[in-house]
Amino acid sequence: MDAVYANNYVIVAIFLLLGVLLPVASVSIIGPMLRPHRPTPEKQTTYESGNIPIGDSWVRFNVKYYIFALLFVIFDVETLFLYPWAVAYNQLGLFAFVEMCIFIVLLVTGLLYAWRKKVLEWE
């Protein structure tokens, strides 16, 4: 059984390695042998519909993105709690059901609050 366990994760490691290897090999090793490399200042300017770029683009952007990221973190953590609960559900019975009802109701309250505060509207 231990061998199976170890082998499984060896395979996962191989897949991860292969996933990194393909882009690295094709872009950095095989690519330069095949493609031309003649940089000019015009080619290296940032694209802005053919105009000369105005200023830097690392500027402030809409704060909404940040709020959505926060909401995502909250609900993703909730899902992390749901997974073990779902796996063990058949052994736990009615008690687990009631507990999870309370948990979800608390979270839905949070969602409703965000909804009322117009966090979910865009612009």
Binding site: S26, K43, Q44, T45
Partner: peptide, 18 residues
């Protein structure tokens, strides 16, 4: 695509761009 030049803008963040 393999044979096309691979341009990188001068102002880009080199490490992250790669």
């Amino acid at each position: 695509l393999l044979l096309k030049e691979d341009t990188r803008p001068k102002h880009a963040d080199k490490a992250l761009f790669t």
